[in-house]
Amino acid sequence: MDVVQLFVYGIVLGSILTLGAIGVSLIYGILRFAHFAQGDVAAFGAYIALSVVVASGLPALAALPVAMLAAAGLAILIDQTVYRRLRGASPVILLISSFGMALVIRSLIQLVWGPHNQTFASGIQIPYRVGGLVLKPDHLLIVAAAVALVVGLHLFLTRTRMGKAMRAMSDNMDLALVSGVPAERVVMVTWALAGALGAAAGVFLGMDTRLHPQMGWSVLLPVFAAAILGGIGKPYGAIAGGLVIGVAMEMSTMVIDPAYKPAVAFAIMVLVLVVRPQGIFAGKVL
């Protein structure tokens, strides 16, 4: 396939991975553990959107706010019922707990929505043709919405008191605490943001491909690859990380079997971890 066309697909996938990776990075920055249930929180958001779409007949993008709200609620619920009780424990325990939580959420999805593949909209979208390039309307919507969300997050982190408090906590936890930053409230906002952005990633992934209970697990690896590439704990790095991983995964199909796309994400991640464990953009903030 055409290089430019694959690049476009890569940007679409990259936008989706970016949103997931920002969530992972925010959680890591504040709570210092790798949240393995992030993919399944994203899948949960996608399925909530599916229910809204089915019930209302609206397009998936219109269901996005509901999905984001629901996933934010789910993330806070998980934190308050389980992770909060493990705050003092080592990050290893939290990691294992979140691995179990991923399966709990996946089971719930399978119970409520069934184990088969589903899509938001039946029928074929009429693509735009620009030169030799084929652009699906959904792809444009996904990229535009992802950009809007990232800009919104940037404004939140740099312009609001709570956003700055989040950055402060991720920067220097002890100093933030003695400065009177309300830790538990920041943690809650972090979960809400990670859940909401994850849900957006899930909805966009569902728009781009299909919904499946395993969808969260299958994006987890590229999402973490993106977060690590960008320097985990650094939400701005996740943008670059997501785009690099997304484009690399799509472009790789020119030379290898598309079935091995996740392996490409993995290979880049391992390479980065070995060569530059702090991520490419560590120490820099956009």
Binding site: A34, V92, I228, M269
Partner: peptide, 8 residues
């Protein structure tokens, strides 16, 4: 680090 190993 142990969490990176887990992801790997």
């Amino acid at each position: 680090r142990s969490d990176y190993l887990a992801i790997a």
